[in-house]
Each structure stands twice: as structure tokens, then as C-alpha cells.
């Protein structure tokens, strides 16, 4: 008499345990697989930036134009002169840390904040900037431009 209900009780309890275990296990697997899947999906933002960064092909940049790039946390500016010479500088204005830009018409580097001007050697030539822009070294290998800090 006692055995039969006892047995069914035990068996249902076991089923319940298995059921809960499966749920827990399944949930846990999801909790592992979701981060794993997200990790494996390549991030949208571009690859790492470094002291030796590649910022594109030299031939793709027109003469008398510029290109901004990221140097760690700070902006940098690459300039291709009319003669096709490449130059790179820190793009942080030495006056109040605004970001400078290339001014095609005047053929100089220009800061919009206070009209600071630098020549294409990074030398401060007009306006409030107290010192020149820090130049970066450029290395062109097989048309690929690398900036060395």
C-alpha cells in the first residue's frame, strides 16, 4: 500500500528535478553562448589604432588634400602637398586644443577656433598658437602610409 504511492511520488519528484535541471542547464548554456556569439561577431568599429598606424594608400589621396586620422585618443592630420609630398602632424592646436584642418585655398593648416594658422611644416605662422604642431614620421611601404609616433 505504502510502496506504490511512495514510488510514484519519488518518480514524479525525480522528473521534476530533471525538469528543473534541464531548464537551469539550458538557461546557463544560453548565458554562455550569447556572450560567446557576441564575442565572435567582428565589431563594427575599425581595427586597432597604434603608434604605427596604417592610414590608407598614398595613391588614393589627392595632391593638395588632407586626411584626418586617430592617433590613440588624439586626432592627427595627414597632408599631401601640391607637389605630392606627405606630411603628418598632431591635429591638436597648440593654442586651446581645438582640432585643426587643412585649408586648401590658403595652402596652410588652419584652426577654426581662433584662426590660428600653421604652414605646411607645422610651424605656427599666424594667430594665437604659441608653438608648432608636433610632426609625425611617415613611412610609405608599397603605397601604404604608416604613421610612426
Amino acid at each position: 500500500m505504502n510502496e506504490i504511492p511512495g514510488y510514484t511520488e519519488k518518480s514524479s519528484r525525480r522528473d521534476f528535478l530533471n525538469y528543473v535541471l534541464s531548464i537551469g542547464f539550458f538557461g546557463w548554456i544560453v548565458a554562455i553562448l550569447y556572450p560567446l556569439y557576441s564575442y565572435l561577431v567582428p565589431p563594427k568599429s575599425p581595427d586597432v589604432d597604434v603608434s604605427n598606424i596604417s592610414i590608407g594608400k598614398a595613391s588614393e589621396i589627392e595632391n593638395n588634400s588632407s586626411k584626418m586620422f586617430k592617433m590613440g585618443n588624439k586626432p592627427g592630420i595627414l597632408i599631401k602637398t601640391k607637389e605630392g609630398e606627405l606630411r603628418a602632424f598632431s591635429a591638436t592646436c597648440t593654442h586651446l586644443d581645438c582640432t585643426v584642418q587643412f585649408n586648401k585655398e590658403e595652402n596652410l593648416i588652419w584652426c577654426a577656433c581662433h584662426n590660428g594658422k600653421y604652414d605646411l611644416n607645422g610651424k605656427n605662422i599666424s594667430g594665437p598658437p604659441p608653438s608648432p604642431l608636433t610632426p609625425f614620421n611617415i613611412n610609405v611601404q608599397k603605397d601604404e602610409i604608416y604613421i610612426l609616433k
Binding site: 525525480r14 528535478l17 530533471n18 535541471l21 537551469g24 542547464f25 538557461g27 546557463w28 548565458a31
Partner: peptide, 23 residues
């Protein structure tokens, strides 16, 4: 939050495993 969720699942597994082991 994610940590909390995974902890809940692990706790569920642990508890049930414990009972299963006893059984």
C-alpha cells in the same frame, strides 16, 4: 544584470544537482 541572470541559472543547476546527488 547578465551576471545576475547567469548566477540564477547556475544556482538552479547547483541546487538541483545537489538534490539529485542526494537521491
Amino acid at each position: 544584470l547578465g551576471l545576475g541572470v547567469s548566477t540564477i541559472f547556475i544556482t538552479i543547476i547547483c541546487i538541483t544537482l545537489y538534490f539529485k546527488l542526494k537521491k
